[in-house]
């Protein structure tokens, strides 16, 4: 089982939303990490056959996914970033409808919906209208619909967007739970969403995959190291101007900073273990979560 992307490009008028992306994915969790506007959503939409590429191919076990049509979509579970639903449907009706368009027989659909609702903790609200659910509950209903057909490929576009920290942790654990024996591709601009659950991270910038590897390898590939230092408040500007600063914390003695640098920034700086968040800062040159609108 292999999803192979070869030289995939998508042009929108003058913009290259996705530019010659190539990679191969098998079973496991893949974290597609990039700032807003990096092209993650466009890439995912092509993987879901929603948008045709301008050039390049996507194959599943050697077959073009656009030619496979329904055969490919049968293997697919997708939770879009802008997850839409039918506001006046109950959660249960919504799931049974999605099951019907996924080609699942009613009896099997009911059983599957019940199991998944229980798994995500929504059994108690299955007869509530979708519009009455909280943001987190809607997202969980979203993951249930994506999982209804027990997909071999699960694509989740910014699944934690707009969730509070508790819901985010819950969702992350849920994804981890559901990731067995399937390919899960999860896009986010929040590093912590994928840091601990992804087997492989794909760093996407300006339409291209700039780096693809395990979190450990990606961290070790970073030429700069992470330093922690305490500086007088008056010197903070100097460090902000001359270094990539991943964190600033005001303390009574001055300012504690976390800096990325090949060389020790000052004599008192303490070498820290680099994290994925530092890699994000290194490659994208800005802090996670900042950026432009989605492409």
């Amino acid at each position: 089982m292999e999803l192979k992307i070869s030289l995939l490009t998508k042009d929108f008028q003058d913009t290259k939303a996705v530019n010659r992306v190539s990679c191969t994915m098998g079973n496991g969790v893949y974290g597609l990490l990039g700032i807003n506007g990096a092209g993650k959503t466009t890439l995912m939409r092509m993987l879901c056959t929603l948008v045709r590429p301008s050039s390049g191919t996507i194959t599943w076990d050697g077959k073009d996914i656009f030619e496979m049509g329904g055969e490919y979509r049968k293997l697919l579970g997708y939770l879009p970033q802008d997850f839409g639903y039918y506001p006046d449907f109950t959660v249960y009706d919504y799931l049974l409808y999605i099951a019907s368009i996924k080609g699942i027989r009613p009896a099997a659909a009911k059983k599957r919906a019940e199991t998944l609702l229980k798994q995500v903790g929504l059994s108690g609200v299955k007869n509530k209208k979708m519009k009455k659910l909280s943001g987190g509950m809607k997202r969980r209903a979203g993951i249930v619909q994506a999982m209804l057909n027990d997909p071999k490929i699960l694509i989740l576009d910014e699944p934690t967007a707009g969730l509070d920290p508790n819901e985010r942790i819950r969702f992350r654990n849920l994804i981890s739970e559901l990731s067995q024996d399937r390919l899960v591709l999860l896009s986010t601009h929040i590093v912590s969403d994928v840091e601990y659950i992804a087997n492989e991270i794909l760093l996407m910038k300006e339409g291209s995959i700039t780096l693809a590897d395990t979190p450990e390898n990606i961290i070790s590939s970073m030429p700069e190291r992470a330093w922690s230092l305490l500086v007088p408040r008056a010197e903070m500007g100097h460090y902000l101007k001359n270094y990539k600063v991943s964190n600033v914390k005001t303390v009574p003695q001055g300012v504690r900073m976390r800096i990325l640098s090949e060389k020790r920034p000052n004599a008192d700086a303490i070498l820290e273990e680099a994290a994925l968040e530092d890699v994000f800062l290194y490659y994208f040159g800005e802090k996670e979560g900042a950026g432009d609108d989605e492409i």
Binding site: R45, F83, Y85, Y86, I98, I101, K102, Q145
Partner: peptide
């Protein structure tokens, strides 16, 4: 489907482009 933004889920389903 577009109004409710449910189009993406609809079109990625097995029958989304036929039945």
């Amino acid at each position: 489907e577009f109004q409710w933004k449910s189009d993406a889920v609809f079109f990625t389903s097995f029958y989304g482009r036929n039945k």
